[in-house]
Amino acid sequence: MSGAFVLGTYTLAQRELVRFFRQRNRVSGALLQPIIFWVLFGAGLNASFRPARGGDDYMVYFFPGILVMILLFTAIFATVSVIEDRREGFLQSVLVAPVPRGAMVLGKLLGGTALAVLQGLVFMLLGLTQGIGYSAATFGAVLGAMLLLAFALTGLGFIFAWRMESTQGFHAIITVLLLPMWLLSGAFFPADGTHPVLYAVMQLNPLTYGTALMRHAMYLDPARTAAPGVPGPALALGVSAGFALLTFALSYRIAGTRVAGDLQ
């Protein structure tokens, strides 16, 4: 039983990677756009960026935020493949195979996580150009944070993608929900000094804790990364882990339902 679980999870996750690298536009799209964001916003806002409390220049401030964006985009687009799998018919043969539902969900999520983390690693190299260095400890911490966040975000994408019949519908979700979620996570601007309502929204946003986790992991120096409105390392880790568990649980649950597309 557990053998079938592991083999099923492995084969489905591995398939995600193979498919990804065979679609060149996906390879460039997921990584290139955030890099362009980073360079343009970073260069454009560097001069006017005056955090309430002083600190890093904008390119450096923005860096963990862009890392989170890469994870978000890659993870989300990885789960859009749920819609393609259904439309192209691949999903139906998985649904009647003797693999546990958990393996099907986990395979998808781990495949998406691996893709997101791989792209995150590529982006980390660019940090070196801005004087962001890594020790073995900070590298390990960032890697861990990326794995956790990518998993949570892939799960989030899965929940939306499962019931969706077209990829167009998914773009609406990205625009009205996922992009604002990222914008209001402290990735783009600090919560400190914003309007109280905005501040409260940011504190309720689970991704705020993910971005904070990434920020702390970059330096492993709470004195450097602590700021008003930025959750501390333990809280950031706890909420992010909870978020990951929650999205996985909901993905698992929703995958037990049959949608119209399965019954064509």
Partner: peptide
């Protein structure tokens, strides 16, 4: 499920593989 082989009407192959 292990006893049955299913051939669906709609294609079920992964085209990229």
């Amino acid at each position: 499920r292990r006893k049955i082989g299913v051939v669906f009407q709609a294609p079920s192959l992964d085209k990229k593989l």
